[in-house]
Amino acid sequence: MTAEPAHRAGARAAPAPPASRPSGRHARPLAEVHLLSLTLDDAALERARAVLSPAEREHADHGVPAVRRRRTALRAGMRAALGSALGVAPADVPLVADPLGRPGLGPAAPGLDVSCSAGGDLGVVVVGHGVRVGVDVEPVAPWTAAVADEGWLTASELRWLRLLPPARRAVAATRCWTAKEAVAKATGRGLTGPLPEVGTLRAPRTRRTAGWLLHPVRVPAGSVATLATDTPVRLVLDDLPTTAPPERTTR
C-alpha cells in the first residue's frame, strides 16, 4: 500500500473546492506539498508580514532576527497555501490553534488539514484534503557519536544506523528524525508524547509505522523531509512563493 512517487512537479492538481472530500471511493485524497524559501529580502518580508494576524506578528517578533524572518515567511506561506485551497486572500484565512497548539482551520473547513515546518532556510507547507498530515524538514545534521546519546533513537534504529557506512549515516539519521517529528506533528502531541519507532527508511518508498504512513518528500540536497499521513494519499509537489497571490505558480 504505497503512495505514488511524489515527484510529479509541475502537475496541477484538480482544483479542490473548499471542504473537499475524495470524489469517489477509489480516488485517494490529496496532499499538496509546497516548498518555500525562508530567506526573504526586506521587501518580501514586509509583504509577508502584511498578511499575518497581529498575534502571529507578535510571535514572530519575539524571536531573534533570523527566527523572526523564518516565522514570518513560513506563516505567510501557510496562509498562501490555505488561501488558494479555500479561494480567499491569505490574510483572510481563518487560522486557529487547537487545544494542543496545532494550527488548523477548525470547524470552518473540516476537510482541510495543514502542517508546516521550517528547517534552516527551507520551509515546507502541506495541505491535506480529507487527510490528516504532519510534515517535518531538517537540514542534514552531521553524524557524531553524540547523536546516539540524544535519546530519540531506539536501540534497533541505532543498530541499523551503525551498520550503514559513515557517509550515509548523517542523512539516514536526519531522515529518521523527520519521520518521528512528522508523526508527532500529525498527532498534534509534538514532543510531549513518546516518539514512535520508525525504523530505517529506505527512501523513496513509503513506509507504514505506528498507524501512520510516511512519505519521503523530495527537497533540495542538504535537507531531508518526511510527510506523515493517516491514509494513503496522492502527493503533489509545488513551489509556492511566499507572497503568492491566490493563484499558484507552477514550475
Partner: peptide, 17 residues
C-alpha cells in the same frame, strides 16, 4: 525562549539528554 533563539525540536532532545 528556546525557540525564539532558533532552537529546534531536535535540539530540545539533545539539551534534555
Amino acid at each position: 525562549h528556546f525557540a525564539d533563539l532558533g532552537g529546534t525540536s531536535r535540539q530540545v532532545m539533545t539539551l534534555l539528554r
